[in-house]
């Protein structure tokens, strides 16, 4: 089986909007897709992860491009985005909802779309699922320890965090850049991530992340017709610029390798849990 799940095509892309590029994590794909959706009446509300003081993540229903921009950038901690799903439909009265989420959140939403036991009149209102690549996540205090104790930066001073080249990076508002090797951050990962075998959000319409593309660009996996239609239109209308994905060792090769590493490593953990008689999640993306 392909370690990236099923897909139609893979490209490298980045947003063209300067406002997005100023605030986004890599190529600004999620922000660009949502802003495009909102501006062109494809979406009327999007569920994003905003942040409060101290980099605390807050799930938010954004209904304007400005609100999407405010929430741009990756938060390396748990944001229960799906917790506002009903609110998006009921309180915000959205009828065309876009959702961004980690692979586990996308899977959770797909389950809710198939079995919407507690979601009256929701299924036909969720229009776009954008997944982000994810190896693991940190609980809030775990992230805070990495920033404050391992990198020696006060959380209030952080403007951006990043993971790349084997390190966890912290950028401060004073222009400082601190980093710590991922080997040191492993103890602060949430353990429930270690039973997940989905790196690239295999059940999303579009999946995106930095791995496989040059700095400032994102890899975009287009998984179905819905995803293809929106990405093609965005390229045509100049919202995105694209370049072919690097098929080599540092491009697609690296993406596939990491996806496979996550599957193999976490399958071992699942087997280990079974031996101990502990419950494991249903096998969906093994």
């Amino acid at each position: 089986m392909d370690p990236l799940g099923s897909y139609k095509s893979i490209i490298s892309a980045r947003a063209t909007d300067k406002r997005i590029l100023k605030r986004c994590q890599d190529g600004g794909i999620v922000s660009a897709v949502f802003i495009y959706g909102l501006e062109n009446n494809i979406l009327d509300g999007v569920i994003v992860a905003d942040k409060e003081e101290g980099f605390r993540p807050v799930p938010k229903v954004a209904t304007t491009p400005e609100e999407v921009l405010e929430a741009a950038g990756t938060k390396y901690t748990v944001s229960p985005n799906l917790s506002v799903l009903k609110s998006a439909i009921r309180e915000y009265a959205c009828e065309k909802v876009g959702v961004v989420g980690t692979p586990c959140q996308i899977l959770s939403l797909r389950k809710a779309l198939k079995y919407p036991v507690g979601f009256r009149h929701m299924v036909d209102k969720v229009k776009l699922l954008v997944g982000i690549f994810c190896m693991e996540n940190f609980p809030y205090m775990g992230m805070r320890i990495i920033v404050e104790e391992l990198c020696g930066v006060r959380i209030e001073d952080v403007v951006k965090m990043d993971i790349g080249k084997g390190k966890f990076w912290v950028y401060t508002r004073w222009g400082e850049v601190k980093s710590v090797k991922l080997k040191k951050t492993h103890p602060y990962e949430q353990s429930s991530c270690h039973v997940c075998t989905d790196y690239t959000a295999e059940l999303a319409d579009i999946s995106t992340g930095s791995v496989g593309s040059p700095d400032g660009w994102s890899t975009v996996i287009i998984r179905n017709e819905r995803g293809e239609e929106i990405i093609n239109k965005m390229i045509e209308e100049g919202y995105l610029e694209r370049r072919p994905i690097d098929e080599g060792k540092f491009g697609l090769g690296l993406l596939k390798k990491l996806a496979l590493v996550k599957k193999e490593k976490n399958m071992k953990e699942i087997e280990h849990r079974k031996e101990l008689g502990l419950p494991v999640p249903p096998d969906v993306c093994h």
Binding site: P59, L82, L85, A112, M141, S192, P281
Partner: peptide, 25 residues
């Protein structure tokens, strides 16, 4: 308690009485 929760929040949204709040994920 079984270290399976990753904090997606779907439980909270599905609750008909809003009995579930997500705290620290």
């Amino acid at each position: 308690n079984k270290s399976l929760c990753m904090g997606c929040g779907i439980c909270s949204a599905s609750c008909p009485t809003r009995a579930i709040e997500m705290v620290d994920g």
